[in-house]
């Protein structure tokens, strides 16, 4: 009975187009633009992702007894106020949790969820190295590909375009390194 029902759903055209198959790039682009406008209107700031991760790091550091007040990055009153308010009262943090929950929901409903195996030690090294470089780059560059590139361009800032040129150059170097050392 249940098997029959799941087969019926799997064969349904609307299920396939809306939930199972990836949406076309253009649909994604239009939706991201609409949500960017909503984000701007609702919060007064454009969409950003990685700044919240720096706060997560600060909260973890504080939780184990560290102090970040002396760090230049957190030295402004605004930054300290955000840390003061805490994890659950930081809108970008909640939005990041929403992105993770939404991504999980979308793969579950498309029955595409899978826990992937780690194949080699090289993968671990590449992932850790890549994560560190991305995190460091995003903070030293005042934004990642969302906050600095996508949001920068959408608010007509020249910095977004400059960031875009160099992220392409970086991606070329990164891909060459990936092929040479990690494949």
């Amino acid at each position: 009975m249940l098997k029959k029902l799941s087969d019926t759903i799997a064969a349904n055209d609307y299920y396939k187009v809306w939930l199972k198959d990836a949406w076309p790039y253009i649909t994604g682009a239009v939706l991201l633009s609409i949500f960017q406008i909503v984000t701007m209107a609702a919060t007064g700031s454009p969409w950003g992702v990685s700044a919240a991760f720096a706060n997560w790091g600060a909260w973890i550091y504080q939780a184990v007894g560290g102090s970040v007040e002396k760090l230049y990055y957190f030295s402004s009153d605004g930054a300290l106020a955000v840390l003061e308010r805490g994890f659950f009262r930081d809108p970008p943090t909640i939005r990041n949790l929403g992105i993770i929950a939404g991504a999980l929901f979308s793969v579950l409903i498309a029955s595409g969820f899978k826990i992937k195996k780690i194949k080699t030690g090289k993968q671990v090294v590449a992932a850790v190295l890549g994560g560190l470089l991305m995190g460091y780059g995003a903070r030293i560059g005042f934004g990642c590909n969302i906050g600095a590139l996508y949001s920068g361009i959408s608010v007509l800032s020249l910095s977004g375009w400059v960031f875009g040129v160099f992220i392409f150059l970086g991606a070329i170097v990164g891909s060459k390194m990936l092929v040479k050392y990690f494949m």
Binding site: K116, K117, I118, K119, L178, F182, M183
Partner: peptide, 13 residues
Amino acid sequence: CLGEACPVPLVKA
């Protein structure tokens, strides 16, 4: 290419 992330599967293929 199981367990490999982009762009590794494409380059390998």
